[in-house]
Design a protein around this nucleic acid. Sequence first.
DNA 1: ATCTAGTTGCAAATCGGTCGCATCTGGTAC
DNA 2: GTACCAGATGCGACCGATTTGCAACTAGAT
Lengths: 148, 148
Amino acid sequence: MPLPQTEMPGRLQAYCAERGIRMTQQRRAILRVMETASKHLDAAQLLRKAQKLDASVDRSTVYRTLRLLKRQGLIDELDLMHIHGEGHYYERKLNRDHIHMACLRCGKIMEFVSDIFEKLKGQVEKDCRFRIVVSRLEIGGYCANCSK
Amino acid sequence: MPLPQTEMPGRLQAYCAERGIRMTQQRRAILRVMETASKHLDAAQLLRKAQKLDASVDRSTVYRTLRLLKRQGLIDELDLMHIHGEGHYYERKLNRDHIHMACLRCGKIMEFVSDIFEKLKGQVEKDCRFRIVVSRLEIGGYCANCSK
DNA sequence: ATCTAGTTGCAAATCGGTCGCATCTGGTAC
DNA sequence: GTACCAGATGCGACCGATTTGCAACTAGAT
């Protein structure tokens, strides 16, 4: 178990191979960007970064690939409280769900892992007899700095 | 305390009056629709229903009014996991925050109030020194019926 | 090397939401 | 009640995000 918090680099491609998903030049570029991204990317940023690896990558291919990865449950789609425009942000789904907090003043995005969140999801599954596939908790407010 | 779970009908207009918000024919129609809606409405549905009360209501007025109510903290904006399209849904903000669950198969939307959710928000405020203004927990999965 | 189902780039279309502007109106002041 | 004006409206054009139709291309099985 070399990397506890995150997944192995290259792991998205491995998942796709396991599931018999055809690997193209363009998808390789997009997956590499997703794997190495340090922050949440929207579709436009993802496109720009992917085109640096393979200039032929088209906008529609980015969207099609995002849809594919979403369907496979390999990435999560976020709004981040629509701090900038109406678009979406994407991140690899890791082992542990986390909460996203967006500061309404400085725009900073924070993440937080909580056992209480896990407990809450457990309660929903049990009390509502609801089988959870994906969950998203986003919070808007003011970070420590901006609250002052 | 006549109505425990929900607010008094007509209450949105009362709030607006208290805050010195100008009340127009069109806003009255839109607020009335929001107040009497039995389910979550998107902007297009809200427009159609409001036009039945006042045919002059325009699409842009609906959006402008929604923005106003959002800024005033009188309504919440939801995605409902984008079950139908990319748009947003709206609901009056009630006393108690609640979780939204969307069944990925039948499309049913369920709501759930939980003390654990309140506890989780408390933890975020304390541990992250983050002042919460708005929070949204949406869950996608399969309801009891569709899990079978 | 061949074949084909699946993928791509491109351009046009769609969709949810916003904006500029001339006109209208709610509600206060007289 | 009338006049007034800041703020609200309808209209149509616009915008950014995402999707689609289609002909050309390619990964990977045979």
